[in-house]
Nucleic acid binder design. Structure first.
Length: 728
DNA sequence: ACGCTTTTTC
């Protein structure tokens, strides 16, 4: 650019005045586009010296440049040189105001114009549509006296941008009927409309038209057709279009890269990326984003650094994807570094960057810092709000989350899901249902994710009635074949003890993931179907590619423990790490301790607990003590009880069991002394609790202290029933 | 003047 300027300065304009102006104009255009305003003002000064700065073409380009750089003094200076606003100046001002988001200003300028041409109309209509002001845009669209390809295309693409794909297609058909010839850009927009409308047949007939009119070898039309094919899973078609292209640009390559990601083949995508003839910030950001979204956060961050090393300047997308990756890695320090960087280049307040920064700080437990970012975003969209709400939820700050949630101007599905998930994570099931009902009343349709959370809440309070009600809603919405929903249903029915329904849902699932298998194996084991649970585990190993995880092993050990298959259990336990590469956790050791104790192998259990690599859980000792009770072994019981009293100064389980052991052995004095010890140490026996659900209301019954408000009536009815049973 | 590829939250 600098050399271009030098060459220009060396030319004597007297020789070819027209060429000189043309060169100046194209230079100004480039400077303006690339933001090289210093170059621009140097050229401006030179043009003044040459006495041609007021040439119409040059003055317009100078105006555009100063408008783009928001230099108001210089802009005013140029405007003064025009004698009153002419049509072209007006159009420039409208375009600039649209760029600045000042749509009211643009409209006012437009309305005040004495003469408007098609450029004025197109600029205003597309500007309004770009900023989501569809109704106003359509008002002008219906009243324009001009009928040409630009205005129609502006209307079509704008409608597509606003999600009104059907309206866009209608405008396209009307355009064809009135004899206006579509151009490449029209087709690009219409193909996108077909993809988003979800009608492959419509898209295919548009493709026919494209071929008929001869646009099938156009670059951007082919690019949009690739995207269209991928969206409908037509991989072969996408590849065919790509292969038949005469020239491919970075967009075509990025689209085909995305195809492999869509197919779940990240490796092939990376191969395409590495072999692309040309890359731009978008290709980089596509690859970074895809790594980040598929859970390869480290790789995403690595690629970001690689990109910077290669001399590319990351754009907003790269930054937001990278920050999001850092958030999932909880890499606060690296995140802060990037935060500093985005602040320096002035995109800190961008909604994408801002939302991921909020997420970063909240995932690292710094909700206050997240809130500072949140407050700094001037034009918050719903994603910013959602990030902040889920950030608070994540950190257990439910009051803050709810307060913010209630203030969201336009909630979307994810807003509701964040709030519901927040209450679920913090075990406030009642609030889960409360917000869910609120959601239904607001008219928002629950999604797969919503059901997965609410069903999980049903499972946690074992409310089969609520669960069945939800199951009905799921079927009504037609989302009963979703893996997440079905897994939640399987788990809910199992946790509620309705193992038959649980199995029915599980068996008809089209695809099962790791969590689905875990839910069913665990469900069977915990409902007393130990053999079936083990059979299912073996079936999983044989028929699916799912590798057993910690939780599945826990269920397997639990099952072995409950059907007395001690040796099988021990075999699984020993092969966990050796064969499957799953390191047993403390809970697995506890489970084995329980298994040995239950079967009466008390000495073995005791040895197992004392030699395990973790600090034994209280439950491990409690299990042994319980085993001592069933198999009446007072000596080990006393040793164990001592251990327990050391470990569980505050937890009452050990003492309760110990007193029960003494009781079963008839040593009442010891029972009394243990109870006394408990009282002295301030240990309270945690009461048992059971419940029934009657007409959507939960009735709780405690073994002590609290009594049901209608306790007297309930016992009355119970007596009545008892007497009737005796009569029969 | 109108377009294609990428970005944030559950």
């Amino acid at each position: 650019m600098r050399s271009a300027l030098k060459t220009l300065f060396a030319i004597n304009p007297g020789n070819s005045f027209k060429a000189y102006i043309e060169t100046s104009v194209s230079l100004l255009k480039d400077f303006s586009k690339q933001g090289l305003f210093t170059h621009g003002s140097v050229l401006h000064a030179h043009l003044i010296k040459m006495g041609i700065s007021s040439e119409n073409y040059i003055a317009i380009k100078l105006l555009i440049m100063y408008l783009n750089s928001r230099k108001s003094a210089e802009t005013d200076q140029i405007l003064k040189e025009f004698n009153g606003f002419n049509l072209v100046v007006h159009n420039c001002l409208i375009a600039a105001n649209v760029d600045w988001g000042n749509l009211d200003g643009a409209r006012q300028l437009f309305d005040e114009m004495p003469h408007k041409n098609e450029v004025s109309w197109t600029a205003l209509i597309s500007g309004l549509l770009k900023h989501g002001r569809v109704e106003e845009a359509m008002w002008y669209f219906e009243r324009t006296p001009f009928q040409n390809v630009f205005i129609s295309t502006a209307g079509i693409s704008g409608l597509v941008k606003n999600g009104l794909t059907f309206e866009a297609i209608k405008v396209f058909l009307k355009m064809l009927q009135s004899g206006v010839m579509p151009n490449d850009i029209t087709f690009t927009s219409v193909v996108r409309a077909c993809a988003e409308f979800g009608d492959i047949g419509l898209g295919m007939s548009v493709l026919g038209l494209i071929v008929k009119v001869g646009f099938e070898h156009n670059l951007s039309v082919s690019n949009s057709l690739i995207t269209f094919s991928i969206r409908f899973g037509e991989i072969d078609l996408a590849r065919r279009i790509f292969n038949q292209m005469e020239n491919r640009d970075v967009v075509s390559w990025t689209a085909i890269l995305d195809m492999y990601v869509e197919m779940g083949d990240l490796r092939e995508a990376r191969r395409v990326f590495d072999e692309m003839p040309e890359r731009n910030e978008v290709s980089w950001s596509a690859m970074i984003a895809r790594y980040s979204q598929s859970g390869h956060a480290e790789e995403a961050v690595k690629l970001f650094h690689h990109m910077v090393q290669d001399g590319f300047r990351p754009n907003t997308s790269c930054f937001s994807s990278t920050i999001s990756a850092l958030a999932s890695l909880e890499a606060l320090q690296s995140g802060k570094n990037i935060h500093g960087h985005v602040a320096k280049i002035g995109i800190e307040r961008d909604v994408f960057v801002g939302s991921s920064l909020i997420d970063l700080y909240c995932k690292c437990g710094k909700t206050e810092d997240g809130h500072v970012v949140f407050d700094s975003i001037l034009e918050k969209n719903v994603v910013c709000w959602n990030s902040m709400v889920s950030g608070y939820s994540l950190n257990g700050q439910l009051e803050e989350a709810k307060e913010l949630f209630d203030q969201i101007p336009k909630k979307n599905n994810i807003s509701w899901n964040s709030m519901i998930a927040g209450y679920l994570e913090n075990e406030q099931s009642d609030k889960v249902f409360e917000v869910f009902n609120e959601m239904l009343l607001s008219g928002e349709t629950p999604s797969e994710s919503t059901f997965s959370s609410v069903l999980c809440a049903c499972a946690s309070i074992a409310s089969v009635q609520k669960g069945k009600n939800l199951h009905g809603k799921v079927i009504k919405l037609g989302i009963q074949y979703d893996t997440f929903v079905d897994t939640a249903l399987t788990d809910m029915y199992a946790k509620c003890g309705d193992i038959e329904s649980s199995k029915r849902v599980f068996n008809r699932m089209p695809t099962k993931n790791e969590i689905s298998w875990t839910a069913m194996i665990q469900g069977l084991a915990e409902n007393g179907f130990a053999e079936e649970s083990l059979t299912l585990f073996e079936e999983m190993e044989k028929t699916s590619s799912v590798a057993p995880n910690e939780l599945i092993f826990l269920a397997v050990l639990f099952a072995c423990s409950h059907c007395g298959l001690v040796d099988k259990g021990l075999w699984y336990f020993n092969s966990m790490e050796k064969v499957y590469g799953v390191r047993p956790m403390n809970r697995h050791y506890t489970c084995v301790a329980d298994m040995l104790s239950r079967s009466g192998r008390l000495l073995e259990a005791e040895k197992f607990i004392t030699t395990m690599p973790y600090q034994p859980e209280i439950n491990a000792w409690a299990a042994l003590l319980s085993g001592c009770k069933t198999h009446t072994n007072e000596r080990i019981a006393e040793r164990t009880a001592r251990k327990l009293s050391e470990l569980s100064e505050k937890k009452s389980g050990g003492y309760v069991m110990m007193s029960n052991i003494y009781a079963s052995a008839g040593r009442w004095i010891d029972v009394l002394s243990t109870r006394k010890l408990m009282k002295e140490k301030g240990v309270k026996k945690s009461g048992g609790c059971s419940w029934v659900e009657v007409r959507n209301h939960l009735h709780l019954f405690y073994s002590q202290d609290e009594t049901h408000s209608e306790s007297a009536d309930i016992y009355g009815i119970l007596e009545l029933l008892k007497s009737e049973m005796l009569i029969l």
